[in-house]
Design a protein around this nucleic acid. Sequence first.
RNA 1: GCUCCUUUCGUCUAGAGGCCCAGGACAUAGCCCUCUCAAGGCUGUAACACGGGUUCGAAUCCCGUAAGGAGCGCCA
Length: 467
Amino acid sequence: MSVVTRFAPSPTGLLHIGGVRTALFSWLYARRHGGKFILRVEDTDRERSTDEAVRVIVEGMQWLGLAHDEGPYFQTARFPRYQEVIAQWLAEGKAYRCYCTKEELEQLRTEQMARKEKPRYDGRWRDRTDSRPGVDPVIRFRNPLEGEVVVEDQVHGRVVFRNSELDDLVIARGDGTPTYNFCVVVDDADMGVTHVIRGDDHLNNTPRQMNMLAALGAKIPVYAHVPMILGPDGAKLSKRHGAVSVLQYEEDGYLPDALLNYLVRLGWSHGDQEVFTRAEMVAAFDIADVNKSASAFNPEKLLWLNQQHLMHSDPATVVPYLKPHLARVGIDIATGPGADDAFLARIVVAQRERVKTLKEMAQASRYFFGEAVELDAKAATKHLSDEGREVLTALRATLEGVTDWTAAPLNAALNAFATARGIGLGKVAQPLRVAVTGNTISPPIDLTLELLGRERSMARLDRALQP
RNA sequence: GCUCCUUUCGUCUAGAGGCCCAGGACAUAGCCCUCUCAAGGCUGUAACACGGGUUCGAAUCCCGUAAGGAGCGCCA
């Protein structure tokens, strides 16, 4: 059997990491088994669905590199198909019209709650054939009254529900539009979905869906309900923490592979391995190894992983992700000593050990671009004092004599200079660093000089030495 | 309230009856390295929710309890 998985977000809120993780699991499972991954947008709630949310889903998935093999399908485009099934079920008696008013149902619920019962529809129109003028009926699915539905869940194991706990759910509203649980069933059946991987908040919906799938004569897919992601405080994921648009992570300077790596390790592990490339994830992932309990989102670990990916990736692959961040901090690449991708790749290598995000990398790389540099007042006071200036003045002559402006010779010259003067390298490197970068932090001074180039380095040194 | 789900260091997890007075990772503390910041190395602090069983032996099996979560919509 060929595997077909799907990611079916609803565009009523912006796609966030919770959704991304279920998408990732579905994608991983399909890739791992050489199957098909479908993207389906569940937009039956026209009131709350927004174009913005659809955009985030499509762009987000694209940024993440979770490519779908089919779709995106939109449920609103499939209404005729849903109507067809409803008409058929009505004819076959698998569904029926219910003329209850909302007030009536509200009253029923209130009474049941008062009796400490689980509120549910009591089936009062289940066997009626008359109608009630003035009320647009809803269509309800005729759920079996007896027996059990057994979900053989890949992560939770065997979960049993009694049909007596289930009521006849609404599959079409008074205005004729179909509802979520019903659309899911028709879609999963029509699209040949073999593995349904979704959040475990849907576990309770599963028996109803299985009953409808049976009514449709469709094969029951394999279910895997993965635990939810909690906020760092252990509470439900909120806007304040993590429940932001997945595109926010791009803006914050994360690499898609790092975010995916972080997310896959939430509720899943493979021995002691923490860092996974995309290929490693695909090779090692199995839905059956996913944990059952919810896990808290930990921003620090995401940050750490992002740096791990920055450090272990081929720098050339990082450059395209860095560029937008350079632009965002106002850097014009053309004003650097090298305006090509190769130069940017060298910056990536030089900076990646000292930053955790691409955003930080861009901010920390300002001095590699533009001609002059602005000296940080505090740094200048400390390192460009009389003593520092005296050292730099002498050093200037030494640097003039360096013919091969690359890290190794520069390093040798700097060390020889310090040794000759009987001072530590720190007394030389720090004033020089402040002079050429404007501040006290940069990659090793020899590499910094090399990347800046001879001309730019000397010009900045001279400028710093001016009274 | 009813139904369903969950419970190992602060956090993510390893652990499928003896290998565990519980291992790894993030975070945190200290040390080392060092031209800055980092990265890296070493060391430390820190957990089996609780109570009963079963067993020679339980984090692992069983039963309760507690706590957290989800669902119970003409939302998805």
